[in-house]
Design a protein around this nucleic acid. Structure first.
Lengths: 248, 248
DNA sequence: TTCATACCGTGGTATTACCACTTTGACAAG
DNA sequence: CTTGTCAAAGTGGTAATACCACGGTATGAA
């Protein structure tokens, strides 16, 4: 895309760039709404004076970045931007860097802290209802690491949605794939601890309550505790052990 | 990419997906390092048993998402992932949503708050030196909205770098294009206020000092003030006005 | 009215040929 | 021996054409 997304039509030497710029203009200028069908490849080819393979290369590239969707036997349609697609990209790119698996947690903390703050100010009754439903799911699935991890993720995704910030939601969606893995790993690491289930559910409940009460500060505090839940619970377990040693 | 990035080679019905998966595997498995040249299109075509146009479509798609770079007369080379490329994507996708120009500020706050917290713990002497240099640039260019905005952005980018979090840096790079515009707009809106320059420079200096002192809490507090700098300064200006009315 | 089938439009792929750029090395001039 | 020029080879860029495969729609029959 460094090739096509920024280049202006004027200096576009190659036919590919011309076509790319042409379609890009149609998309950005709003002439094309989501769901609209692009001109057929053959017609685009004749109109722009290039061969059909070139058209196809452009369309494939646009499809690769998620701007359009090519449907066999139907046509190429403009897609509503879905940032979840970028999740694959991030995974693919970050895969070559390594050591990022736990680093994604930093990004999650960054996004959610801001999101919950906004949610306290902007959440609608619909948002709160969705959060309540997500909480119910968390309660139901707390015993299963796999499904429970998904429910956990869904709850926090609802939190993001309640913030009503497109950009935050986009970033969150972009790292969603990595986040889900992170959620699952946290769950697997945690479920071994006895009594963690009720503690975990209760924590989510308090988070929701804080948002419903529009109490941004305590919500933020709860969230930070939430992220430290592993170490936090280990601390509690240690304290418990001190009072009544488990062995012997 | 919804088409190619996730599909497994097994159920790949279309030749395009097969080729995409093939190249993707080579990339992800590390057989191909950055800078390596892929096989020539013609050879890929004969090896994978598909026609050259299909190969080209795949390569174009991969180039569109920044994974490879196609060089005329030389070949296709593997690129080191550059998340700044995603900035164009975000811009392109968010452009269709509108009303996002100021919303990007929420994401910036989210990222930088976490980054400065991490920076306080992880910043090396090299990072601090870079921040110092960036601060000097900010001082020099404070009068010019355009260049000053860039310097401002550079300072905060150095802050992100000091956090040593690949994911945070990636997200930041992804919205860098939008952020730069945001920086510029803030500057233009602010420069009209008298005496804002020294206030702004001083604020950056304090930020750096807090990071150097490893004081995460005060750094966070300063950063929040920094983001509210527009309203904050207006408040000060209003207070000033009360003591000595400007008109008549 | 309802369902099945044929047709048409559209993307999917292959083939072939030729053009343009980049690199490289050979050759000639110094 | 060194250096500059150019020519050849390799590689991507584009074109034209033909045919296959899938989806939708219209048309026909039940």
């Amino acid at each position: 895309m460094g090739a096509g997304l920024t280049r202006e039509p004027a200096d576009a030497a190659t036919g590919y760039d011309q076509v790319f710029a042409f379609v890009r203009e149609q998309l950005l200028s709003g002439q094309m709404k989501a769901g609209d069908r692009l001109l057929p490849e053959r017609e685009l080819a004749t109109r722009l004076g290039v061969s059909r393979p070139v058209i196809r290369e452009v369309l494939r590239a646009l499809a690769a970045i998620g701007v359009i969707e090519i449907r066999h036997g139907y046509g190429s349609v403009v897609r509503r931007p879905d940032f979840a697609e970028l999740g694959d990209l991030f995974t693919m790119m970050l895969a070559q860097q390594g050591e990022v698996v736990e680093d994604v947690m930093e990004a999650r903390i960054a996004i959610e802290r801001q999101a919950i703050r906004l949610a306290c100010a902007r959440a609608t009754s619909t948002d709160l209802a969705a959060l309540g439903e997500a909480l119910r799911r968390v309660e139901e699935t707390v015993t299963d690491p796999q499904i429970g991890g998904d429910a956990d993720f869904a709850f926090h995704a609802a939190l993001i949605a309640a913030a009503h910030s497109p950009t935050l939601a986009s970033l969150h969606a972009a790292i969603a794939v990595l986040l889900k893995r992170s959620h699952l790993e946290r769950r697997e690491r945690i479920t071994s601890l006895d009594g963690i289930e009720t503690y975990l559910v209760e924590h989510h409940r308090e988070l929701l309550a804080a948002v419903a009460a529009r109490d941004a500060d305590s919500a933020d505090r709860l969230l930070m505790q939430h992220f430290a839940i592993g170490t936090e619970y280990q601390r509690r377990a240690a304290a418990e052990r001190d009072r009544s040693p488990p062995t012997s």
